[in-house]
Amino acid sequence: MPTFYGTEVTSRLMLGTAQYPSPAILADAFRRSGAGIATVSVRREASGDQAGQDFWALIRDLGVAVLPNTAGCYSVREAVTTAQMARELFDTNWIKLEVIGHADTLQPDPFGLVDAAAQLAEDGFEVFPYCTEDLVLCERLVEVGCKVLMPWGAPIGTGLGLNNIYGLRSLRAHFPDIPLVVDAGLGLPSQAAHAMELGYEAVLLNTAVAKAGDPAAMAQAFGLAVQAGALAASADPMDARDMAAPSTPVFGKAML
């Protein structure tokens, strides 16, 4: 199982906690999927005081590692402040860092992201940056102290899957020792399995499960898919080829 900042997690599936029909269904989704990490939006849900405690208690009761995030932050300062609030609320140095650069596509602001990651790493945070698959950006993030990278598959909430297989593959090749997580854009379990087959350590998703007609069943499907994909990746898959290669012997047939 993957290890993030020295902590081995129990699953390759990370689930967000927003938009479920109810906390009971959210809990069901975690149970049935075996997801090992729950991400929580601090900015949106918390007012930072006692008032939000009921929901935090529900999240803690899931019994999985909590990865607070800075979802909805559009500036470095906002993201850093939110991270500091999250550290106090959840008593963890982990932070999934989102610095959004564009309101329509919700794509990361790569410049702000590096800046915020540097500040937070300096301050003792263990940063999980939500980034694009841009190789140079990822190098910068690693330089400032990120030991995990979380490139998007597609824009948040679109369900488009892995939009740039080439980019994701080259990241894997370029960072053989950094845990890589596909974060955002997944819509179907097959896409999660594909990410595993590319050699990624984990996937993180929310909408695909929360907005499914039966979120708990979809969560279970994703849980099975990441297992299948990871198993396949460890089984040294065959290489694709152009010409047919018969799977049964052809002795005794005329060779044309």
Binding site: E45, S47, D49, A51, G52, D54
Partner: peptide, 9 residues
Amino acid sequence: QIETRERSR
């Protein structure tokens, strides 16, 4: 719909 029992603000 926000997960908090805050009744104002």
